[in-house]
Amino acid sequence: MQFKLIINGKTLKGEITIEAVDAAEAEKFFKQYANDNGIDGEWTYDDATKTFTVTE
């Protein structure tokens, strides 16, 4: 399945899409990606669109 991350950071904005087995695997990848890029904010997930959003 495809999952999307929308980044609304103070210094980094954009979107990335990955293939993952389930939402838990996608969330783990996205949170590591955000951590690696210094993004720390509020997370939301929309199951209907398979979209995670992080907002700083």
Score class of each variant (00 low, 15 high):
Gln2Ser: 13
Phe3Thr: 01
Phe3Glu: 00
Lys4Cys: 02
Lys4Asn: 08
Lys4Glu: 02
Lys4Trp: 10
Lys4His: 04
Lys4Leu: 05
Lys4Asp: 03
Lys4Arg: 09
Lys4Gln: 03
Leu5Gly: 02
Leu5Met: 04
Leu5Pro: 00
Ile6Trp: 08
Ile6Gly: 03
Ile6Glu: 07
Ile6Asn: 09
Ile6Ala: 11
Ile6Met: 13
Ile7Ala: 05
Ile7Pro: 01
Ile7Met: 08
Ile7Glu: 01
Ile7Thr: 08
Asn8Glu: 14
Asn8Thr: 11
Asn8Gln: 08
Gly9Lys: 13
Gly9Ser: 04
Gly9His: 04
Lys10Ala: 09
Lys10Gly: 06
Lys10Ile: 09
Lys10Cys: 04
Thr11Gly: 13
Thr11Trp: 05
Leu12Thr: 14
Leu12Gly: 04
Leu12Ala: 03
Lys13His: 12
Lys13Tyr: 07
Lys13Trp: 04
Lys13Ser: 11
Lys13Glu: 06
Gly14Ile: 12
Gly14Val: 09
Gly14Ser: 09
Gly14Met: 14
Glu15Phe: 09
Ile16His: 05
Ile16Asn: 14
Ile16Met: 09
Ile16Val: 03
Thr17Ile: 11
Thr17Asn: 05
Thr17Leu: 07
Ile18Arg: 10
Ile18Leu: 11
Ile18Met: 05
Ile18Ser: 05
Glu19Gln: 04
Glu19Ala: 05
Glu19Asp: 15
Glu19Tyr: 04
Glu19Met: 15
Ala20Ser: 10
Ala20Pro: 03
Ala20Met: 05
Ala20Val: 10
Val21Leu: 15
Val21Asn: 10
Val21Thr: 14
Asp22Tyr: 14
Asp22Ala: 04
Asp22Met: 06
Asp22Arg: 03
Ala23Thr: 12
Ala23Met: 13
Ala23Val: 13
Ala23Cys: 06
Ala23Glu: 09
Ala24Gln: 06
Ala24Asp: 13
Ala24Trp: 14
Ala24Cys: 03
Glu25Pro: 04
Glu25Val: 04
Ala26Tyr: 00
Ala26Gly: 10
Ala26Lys: 00
Glu27Lys: 05
Glu27Gly: 13
Glu27Ile: 14
Glu27Ala: 10
Phe29Thr: 07
Phe29His: 06
Phe29Pro: 01
Phe29Asp: 03
Phe29Met: 06
Phe29Glu: 05
Phe30Val: 09
Phe30Asn: 00
Phe30Asp: 00
Phe30Thr: 01
Phe30Ser: 05
Phe30Arg: 00
Phe30Met: 06
Phe30Trp: 02
Lys31Thr: 04
Lys31Gln: 10
Lys31Met: 10
Lys31Phe: 07
Gln32Val: 15
Tyr33Asn: 02
Tyr33Arg: 03
Tyr33Gln: 07
Tyr33Val: 04
Ala34Leu: 07
Ala34Lys: 02
Asp36Leu: 13
Asp36Gly: 14
Asp36Cys: 03
Asp36Asn: 11
Asn37Phe: 06
Gly38Trp: 13
Gly38Glu: 09
Gly38Phe: 14
Gly38Cys: 05
Ile39Arg: 01
Ile39Lys: 02
Gly41Asn: 01
Gly41Thr: 01
Gly41Lys: 01
Gly41Ile: 01
Gly41Ala: 03
Glu42Ala: 15
Glu42Arg: 12
Glu42Asn: 03
Glu42Trp: 15
Thr44Met: 15
Thr44His: 14
Tyr45Lys: 02
Tyr45Pro: 00
Tyr45Asp: 00
Tyr45Thr: 02
Asp46Phe: 04
Asp46Ala: 09
Asp46Thr: 15
Asp46Val: 07
Ala48Asp: 07
Ala48Arg: 03
Ala48Phe: 13
Ala48Leu: 12
Thr49Ile: 12
Thr49Trp: 07
Thr49His: 07
Lys50Glu: 03
Lys50Val: 08
Lys50His: 11
Lys50Arg: 09
Thr51Asn: 12
Thr51Met: 11
Phe52Gln: 00
Phe52Ser: 01
Phe52Ile: 01
Thr53Glu: 04
Thr53Pro: 00
Thr53Leu: 05
Val54Ser: 02
Thr55Ala: 14
Thr55Glu: 05
Thr55Leu: 09
Thr55Ser: 12
Glu56Gln: 15
Glu56Ala: 13
